[in-house]
Design a protein around this nucleic acid. Sequence first.
DNA 1: TCACAAAATCGAAACGTTTTCATTTGTAGG
DNA 2: CCTACAAATGAAAACGTTTCGATTTTGTGA
Lengths: 350, 350
Amino acid sequence: MSIKDVAKIAGVSISTVSRCLNSPENVKGKTLAAVQSAIEQTGYAPNALARNFRRGKTGLVMVVLQSVGLPFWEGVMRGINGVAREEGYSILIRETASSQPELDDYLKMVVSKEADGVIILASPSPFSSTNAYSTQDRRTPIVLGCENVTDELAHIPSVRVDNRRAANEATQYLIQLGHERIGFIAGSRGSLLTRDRERGYWDAMKASPRGQQREWVVNGDQTIEGARRATRKLLSLADRPTAIFCANDEMAMASIYEIKRSGLSVPDDVSVLGFDDIRYAAIMDPPLTTVVQPTEEIGERTMRRLLNAIEGRDIGEAPEIVEHRLIVRESTAAPRAQDTTRDDRRELPA
Amino acid sequence: MSIKDVAKIAGVSISTVSRCLNSPENVKGKTLAAVQSAIEQTGYAPNALARNFRRGKTGLVMVVLQSVGLPFWEGVMRGINGVAREEGYSILIRETASSQPELDDYLKMVVSKEADGVIILASPSPFSSTNAYSTQDRRTPIVLGCENVTDELAHIPSVRVDNRRAANEATQYLIQLGHERIGFIAGSRGSLLTRDRERGYWDAMKASPRGQQREWVVNGDQTIEGARRATRKLLSLADRPTAIFCANDEMAMASIYEIKRSGLSVPDDVSVLGFDDIRYAAIMDPPLTTVVQPTEEIGERTMRRLLNAIEGRDIGEAPEIVEHRLIVRESTAAPRAQDTTRDDRRELPA
DNA sequence: TCACAAAATCGAAACGTTTTCATTTGTAGG
DNA sequence: CCTACAAATGAAAACGTTTCGATTTTGTGA
């Protein structure tokens, strides 16, 4: 059932059939009708394999993410998918959770015509020497969404919020509430995104009454378990923080869990502030104060930028910055007046 | 940079180069070495487009899901991805959240060689007349994961837990705890998965002391908002349930949120039981009692079954059933002794 | 009706593989 | 040293489309 059969039935040449499919405005109404009828009749569907082969384009964009199922990426993926559909592309996904390929493997996929471009939403194998993004690679279309990657990929064009400023502002907000001892649960080591947020936190703490304290910053590893551990560590500090800023909402959830579990209350004893505004942020107990990113916009712009690159335009290497916003819910409050000793925990009901 | 260039440099024919790539055991060591060196030298990478075209296979499996970012599908996708990688397939995703194609569109994708097979994890456009799965379609490789689809797709082979039995057992568990008024928050109308769970609930309630009550079953629409609405409805009942069984964990989260918000406590006033054991189930407050599905196994078996179909084997149409398991945490408890009036809510602190 | 330009159609090449069949090379046995 | 056979390699076809240049048809104005 190929274009040939259709041509024969319609009594035209195969090039005419092809034209009917691709530029019907160039074919006479009568022939068009004949061809369409032949197509109906045979149930012909163009062979995408052949077409893509001939055109030298896969129509595929590879999206690298850590794992399907992480709520944060929902909006980003919706954005990506939306413009992909609009522009006739399909999305190929690869999870780094299950395997750990090198960046290089992805770049190769576009030279071997498995995809036309790559969007990176998660660092391929962290700390791999072959992850360096050489100038030679500059010609393969690739864009980062959110800059959730290691240093070596720093120069790849990206679309993201200003994580440093956002984290700074969020921390400022806690300081303004009156908090002086503010903990920070960092994400996975070596992720640009995470490091920028940590920097923003440091920036803000510099000007805070008690200044910066090394021990207030603990690595949460971007995992629930890690964040729980980190929280326990923070809670056991002599100078226990009255507020904890988590590098993302998932860790904030874990942190809240652990805080409550130790008999403390959020936000009465400890305020918690997240980052991302995932779909569960508003129905946690208490509803989470957090930094919102325009995820869908990030997805859309990432995809658009990639398409530009695919079409051969120069997209530069400067990140595209989109706006964030702090959304205040109930997990943050002013610290309690008497909260200067570390022993108030004992006074609480279990 | 094609196979031709490599052939020229290596001083062999293109068929030999092809053989070096695909069946090196059939080529003499010396030529193999020469060819490999030529490949190195040119940086040649086989053109996947051409290869797939020639072979008539895309190497792609289309996975239809509602939306990336829903935690439940994390494990399923990991399973799918795992065997896909093993078998040399890539995963194409399509979200039904952003567009609503018909099942037919997906089937067409395999005839038009955009993918070799389809895995359905979410109903394409619910209640569409063209979603019927005709016997004529029986030849296109397609498998359901979890049967999260509308009636019309009932006869497509699937891999899933026995939702009806699982829901029955879960409800039994609540009954055994001493609950008599048990609410059920159903998922999206028309989803087989959800309906089976509802059936399981009814099955169990038949034998319960107070029997079945229409008003105890409310539609939660598979959404957070829907589940909140449903919960409010249940709580406002004259005979307010002392336990609520939610068709999935996400709705359980929403339900718990709403219960607490109305001043009641979980599980003291109302027990809540979920389904799925998503990654946040264990760190909710309280940690959620729920039904676990072996998601990764489901994904693996779904994919394997699809591959069988792709390779032309008859995979039948009977569902493959995998084992579920109830995991008891802290969101369920025996009802309070005095809990027979509806007015205890007033006695609680706001 | 004719000439001519424009529009429509056709024929054939090309895309980069894989694969079949034929040919060459190598090897062992007599 | 020749034959027979196996192993290795080569030549060419084929996959289904798009597209280029050539050719035919159509339409227009004189």
